[in-house]
Simulated assay, not measured.
Amino acid sequence: MIRVTAIETGKARMKTAQRTGQDGRNGFQRKIDIFRDRNWVSPLPILCFLIEHPEGRFLVDTGDTWRNSVPGYLPRWNPFFTKEVSIRVAPQEEIGPRLSALGLDPARDLEAVILTHFHHDHTGGLDHFPHNRIIAPRENYEVSKGLKGMMMGCLPQRWPIWFRPELVEMDGPPVGPFASSHPITEDGRIFLVPTPGHARGHVAVVVRAEDVTYFLAGDATYDEANLRAEKADGVTNDPALSVATLKAIKAFATNEPTIILPAHDPEGPSRLDHRQVFA
Rank of each mutant, 00 (worst) to 15 (best):
R228H: 13
D233Q: 10
P137K: 06
L102F: 06
G27P: 08
V70D: 05
R228K: 15
L115P: 06
T221N: 12
S144D: 02
G27W: 03
P91C: 03
L147M: 14
R228L: 13
P156K: 09
I32T: 14
S100L: 13
G27Q: 10
P194W: 01
A220D: 09
R138Q: 12
L115Y: 01
N26P: 09
R158H: 14
K11F: 10
K250R: 15
F35Y: 12
P257Y: 09
P130A: 09
D127Y: 06
I32E: 14
F191N: 01
G10L: 04
N226I: 09
A251I: 12
D273N: 04
L115N: 06
H120N: 13
I2V: 14
D238A: 14
D121E: 06
E94G: 08
R158G: 05
I190F: 07
G125M: 06
L272P: 00
G234I: 14
D105L: 04
I184Q: 05
G56N: 02
L192V: 02
L104Q: 05
H122E: 07
R30Q: 14
I46E: 03
L246Y: 10
Q29G: 13
E93D: 14
A225C: 09
R228S: 11
Q276C: 00
T65N: 09
F278M: 04
L104V: 05
L126W: 05
P75E: 06
G72Q: 06
L241R: 15
R38Y: 02
G268L: 11
T16V: 13
G172D: 07
R98E: 12
L147A: 14
L74G: 08
L47D: 03
D121P: 00
D23F: 12
D265W: 08
P196A: 07
G56Q: 01
L110V: 01
P54F: 06
I51M: 03
G10I: 02
D219M: 13
D211L: 11
L216Q: 06
V205C: 06
Y214M: 03
T82V: 08
A101H: 08
F28P: 08
L50G: 03
I32Y: 10
P91Q: 03
V168G: 12
G172R: 11
H128C: 10
K250A: 15
L155G: 08
F58V: 00
T213A: 12
H128Y: 14
T62M: 05
G72T: 05
G56T: 01
T258E: 07
A101D: 12
R275D: 00
G218N: 13
P262E: 05
D33M: 04
A244C: 11
E52I: 00
L147I: 15
E256K: 11
H202W: 00
P54Y: 08
Q22L: 13
R275H: 02
D109W: 03
T213D: 03
C48G: 04
K247D: 10
F129L: 09
Y73G: 02
A90C: 00
M150H: 04
F49L: 01
N132A: 08
R133P: 00
